[in-house]
Structures are given as C-alpha cells and as structure tokens.
Deep mutational scan, measured.
Amino acid sequence: MMAYMNPGPHYSVNALALSGPSVDLMHQAVPYPSAPRKQRRERTTFTRSQLEELEALFAKTQYPDVYAREEVALKINLPESRVQVWFKNRRAKCRQQRQQQKQQQQPPGGQAKARPAKRKAGTSPRPSTDVCPDPLGISDSYSPPLPGPSGSPTTAVATVSIWSPASESPLPEAQRAGLVASGPSLTSAPYAMTYAPASAFCSSPSAYGSPSSYFSGLDPYLSPMVPQLGGPALSPLSGPSVGPSLAQSPTSLSGQSYGAYSPVDSLEFKDPTGTWKFTYNPMDPLDYKDQSAWKFQIL
C-alpha cells in the first residue's frame, strides 16, 4: 500500500520538471525561470610600474599592434585584453584634452560664430520673369535699313540677281523696263511654242516681248482663266512685280493683265486636223540634229 502513496517519478516537459499528477507549474501565473544575472567585471587597478610601461608604449604609438600589447601584458602581468581596453580609454582621454585646449585658446566670443544676415524675399530687387527677354536684342539694338529709291541700282540687283547668272552684270533701268511683257505680243502666236536658250531668258530683255519668248507657250493655258476669275487675268510678269519692288498687295496686282481676252486664246483648236509644230532653235543647249523629232501629229 505504501508504494502507491509515494509520488511517481519526475517528468520533464519543455525542460520543466513536473512532479506526478501536479500540474501547477503549467499555470499561467507561474513564470518561467529567468537567466542568472551576469556579474559585473571588477575594475582593474594599475600600479605605478604598470602605468609607466603603458605610458611609455603610448608615447611611441597610440595604436599598438597585438604583438606589442602581448609583450607589455607579459611585463606588467596583466591579460592582453586589459591592455587593449586601457589604450582605448587613453585615446579617448587624449582627444578630450585636445578639445579642452582648443576651447581655452579661443576667445569668449569666438564660440558663437556670427551668422550672415538672411536676406528677406521682398527687399532684394530681383529681375521680373513675367516678360520673356528678347534673345536677339531686336527691340533695343536692331534698326531696319532704310528703303532705297525705287530706281536705285541696288534694288535692281536684289531683284534680278536671283534669276540671272553670276557672270552677267546687273540690268540697267532701261533693260528692266523691257522685262514687262506686252499683251499683244504674248497673244499673237498662241499655238507656236519656241524653246529659246537659257541665257536669253536671263539677259535678253527682248525675249519677253517677242513671239518667240519663253513664256509665249504658256499663254494658251493662262488666258482661259479670265472668265472664271470674273475680271482681268493676273500676270506674273506684269508691271512692277518684276520691277523695283516685289512687295505689292494682291489688290494692286488684280488690275494688271496680259491684255484683252480673245477667243483665239482658248485651248480649242480651230482646225482639228492641224498639227502643233515646235520651232527648233539652233541655240538650244539640247543638241538634236534631227528636226523631225520636234513634229508630232495630233490624233
């Protein structure tokens, strides 16, 4: 009977010793046993002879290597770790002494450095960015050149030099007046198309007034536009458009034309069986010896 009264063996659950049927240790109110408190290391007290050895090595170098620390530790009968900690504390003490010396050398008012006064946003004049500046400075420094007289040679050079070769001289006033084509001369031969040399188009003023001019072949195509416009036809070669000034309004060009419109200028042929003959000019830059190549039959 006494065997049943004795408590059973101890069981360990999660490293906790349980005594038989008792489960009081598993209750929430019972805390787990805490780790033992780490003991504080005792402070090391250095003797005068030990301090002399350490100070002598510190005077040589503030960062001794492990071999120098072990050698000193053997002399003063201390572990190497204590020597390492002593050098660490000695360097910190040396830095603190240097900072105190710097503070003593500075004057009393030198510690508080005078800061520059901050400028207020409204006091300083700042350039306004509302208006974009002129990058080319046209509004201040540029002045347009004065327009020359209508009959000045410089204007003629600016007008005619675009179309004339570089080897030719500017046309005088008398020749510029001949550039304007007359109405009857352009409409006299509506079906004849003559190819003149390129030099005649640039230099010869008579080429624009003769039936064999460069633009005589364009007349049949330009004249039928007159009834559609409801007024006189516009002429690209009329009046002052080739003269001194090219800047004319469309209203000033509306009254200039080749001449009176005639039914002869239409595109319809009077004789459907007729042929169109292209007159060959020996001055043509295209060297075609066979003139029969310039004739064709309209079917």
Rank of each mutant, 00 (worst) to 15 (best):
M2E: 00
M2Y: 09
M2N: 00
Y4C: 03
Y4S: 00
M5T: 01
N6A: 11
P7I: 09
G8L: 11
P9F: 09
H10N: 00
H10L: 15
Y11T: 01
S12R: 11
V13S: 05
N14V: 15
L18D: 00
L18V: 03
S19E: 01
G20I: 11
P21V: 13
P21L: 12
V23R: 10
D24H: 14
L25N: 03
M26F: 11
Q28A: 10
Q28H: 13
Q28T: 03
V30N: 07
P31L: 15
P31T: 06
P33M: 12
A35W: 06
P36H: 09
R37A: 09
R37I: 07
K38M: 05
Q39N: 07
Q39K: 11
R41Y: 15
R41G: 14
R43N: 14
T44V: 11
T45S: 13
T45Q: 05
R48P: 08
S49R: 08
S49V: 09
Q50P: 11
Q50M: 06
E52R: 10
L54T: 13
A56P: 14
A56W: 10
L57C: 10
F58Y: 10
K60N: 08
Q62G: 09
D65V: 15
A68T: 02
A68I: 07
E70L: 09
E70Q: 05
E71Y: 14
V72L: 08
A73Q: 14
A73I: 15
K75I: 12
K75M: 07
L78D: 12
L78K: 01
P79W: 13
P79H: 07
E80R: 07
S81C: 07
Q84N: 09
V85T: 13
W86P: 15
F87R: 15
N89D: 15
Q96A: 05
Q96R: 03
Q96S: 04
R98F: 01
Q100H: 09
Q100F: 15
Q100R: 09
Q103A: 07
Q103R: 14
Q104I: 05
Q104G: 04
P107C: 05
P107V: 03
P108R: 11
P108H: 06
G109N: 07
R115L: 02
R119G: 02
A121R: 10
S124E: 07
T129G: 05
D130V: 12
V131Y: 08
P133Q: 04
D134L: 08
L136V: 11
G137W: 11
S143C: 03
P144N: 06
P144C: 02
P145L: 03
P145A: 08
P147N: 06
G148V: 03
S150H: 07
G151K: 09
S152H: 07
T154F: 14
A156N: 02
V157T: 02
V157W: 12
A158C: 12
A158Y: 12
T159D: 00
T159H: 05
V160W: 04
V160N: 01
S164C: 14
A166V: 08
S167Y: 13
E168R: 11
P172R: 12
A174F: 13
Q175I: 13
V180N: 01
A181C: 09
A181N: 02
A181D: 01
S182R: 11
S185P: 02
A189I: 13
P190H: 10
Y191E: 00
M193D: 00
Y195L: 11
A196K: 06
P197T: 12
S199A: 11
S199I: 15
S199C: 12
A200N: 01
S204R: 11
S204I: 08
P205D: 01
S206E: 02
S206L: 12
S206N: 00
A207L: 11
A207I: 10
Y208M: 06
S212M: 11
S213D: 01
F215L: 02
F215E: 00
L218E: 00
D219T: 13
P220I: 15
Y221R: 07
L222M: 08
P224G: 12
P224I: 13
P224N: 06
M225V: 05
M225W: 11
V226E: 01
P227W: 13
P227F: 14
Q228M: 13
S235G: 07
P236Q: 04
P236S: 06
L237I: 05
L237T: 01
P240K: 06
P240W: 15
V242T: 06
G243D: 03
G243T: 03
G243Y: 10
P244Y: 09
P244E: 02
S245A: 09
L246A: 03
A247R: 12
A247S: 01
P250H: 05
S252M: 09
G255M: 12
S257E: 02
S257R: 11
G259C: 10
G259V: 15
A260G: 04
Y261L: 06
Y261R: 11
P263I: 13
P263S: 07
D265A: 15
P272G: 06
G274F: 10
T275S: 03
T275C: 08
W276C: 01
W276L: 02
F278M: 00
N281H: 14
P282H: 06
P282N: 04
M283P: 09
D284F: 13
D284W: 14
D284E: 03
D284I: 14
L286C: 03
D287T: 09
Y288Q: 04
Y288G: 09
Y288K: 10
D290V: 13
Q291T: 10
Q291F: 11
A293G: 12
K295P: 00
K295M: 14
K295L: 13
F296L: 06
I298G: 00
L299D: 00
L299A: 00
L299R: 00
